[in-house]
Design a protein around this nucleic acid. Structure first.
Lengths: 178, 178
DNA sequence: GCAGCAAAGTTGTCGCTACAACTATTCCGA
DNA sequence: TCGGAATAGTTGTAGCGACAACTTTGCTGC
């Protein structure tokens, strides 16, 4: 039962990953907060809606696509609703469920915010890597997500890549118009 | 000035990295909270101290090694101090500075908590990757940190690897005894 | 030897997230 | 068809982190 301490190689990878975990969210948050008065998470809520048919999604599906728990999402959606960026409506087919849909102001907001966010992601992530590293990163994060979310209950956003391009499911794809 | 939208490859890497950013901290936090009544960040504060001479470090240096701002660190150190896990003492050489040092209880706590944390890191990160991917991850995160922290003001924990093994500077190296 | 700026920490407040508890539907089996 | 479990979502609360404001000490130029 000896503890399997990390060796030098493992330690380097882990400590640096931990650094990224600590620093990257803050960078993304502060750009969006400054330029669009949105949290990174709030932005993704709007972005995922903007890519759904009619800009509408069930709460639970929205939660999966943003990797969020339902309580967290519910609070965030309440705030966004009170700001007039989206609306809640009861789902006719399942009376337990709630649909969240973008309002006109929500569409505008996400279209305004998207370009700046993409630039930030490029500057701080993609531009730092070679093409090869981008693919390596996709494979690595894919493997990690399989451990972190084994049931795939939050899998919507990282559908395995089998050579067929994903449908544009990104936060950082152009918002598909109304 | 057209927005440089992400293409399919980039989108996959990014969305998955974002998923890891969202899910991994929670996994680490909840294990440590459950088994050691510590936040992942609190654990790293103790761990970094445990690897410093005499278990003592200046606040600002501790902040660099944990990738934390000073206000955040100050709050956390206050809590840990009130729990008896470390002590603050004014630094004799620079009267602006404060040293934080582990107490006996702090040493015990970090030694107790370390094995479970290492196992969690292995299970959810390293074991999911091939040896080659571990090295790729180190290179990728190194490149990202260069963008996220260009001045290196939080660089202590990711000293570039040039073929010379780092000194054991990890959270996940065995706590070097008192 | 002092004016002014930088560095090191601390503190207060606000907002977000995790967790637990709860309600309301739907599904399933006998 | 009815009782129990699972699903979908909301709400209350406590705690952590970001940000701004502030104090104290050290450094530099003149």
């Amino acid at each position: 039962m000896a503890t399997p301490w990390l060796d030098g190689r493992e330690l380097r990878a882990w400590i640096r990953l931990r650094g990224v975990l600590e620093l990257l969210p803050g960078v993304l948050d502060s750009q969006l907060r400054r330029d669009a008065d949105l949290t990174e998470f709030e932005y993704y809520v709007l972005a995922m809606l903007s890519e759904a048919p009619s800009g509408t999604l069930r709460m639970s599906e929205l939660g999966r696509q943003t990797n969020a728990t339902l309580p967290r999402l519910s609070h965030v959606v309440s705030r966004l609703e009170s700001r007039g960026l989206l609306e809640r409506r009861p789902c006719p087919e399942d009376r337990r469920a709630t649909n969240a849909g973008l309002t006109e102001a929500g569409w505008r907001k996400v279209r305004e915010a998207a370009p700046g966010h993409v630039v930030t992601v490029r500057e701080h992530v993609l531009d730092a890597l070679t093409d090869e590293q981008v693919d390596q990163l996709a494979a690595i994060t894919d493997a990690l997500l399989a451990r972190l979310d084994p049931t795939g209950s939050m899998a919507a956003t990282y559908t395995r890549y089998d050579g067929v391009p994903d449908a544009p499911t990104g936060s950082t794809a152009p918002p598909t118009g109304g």
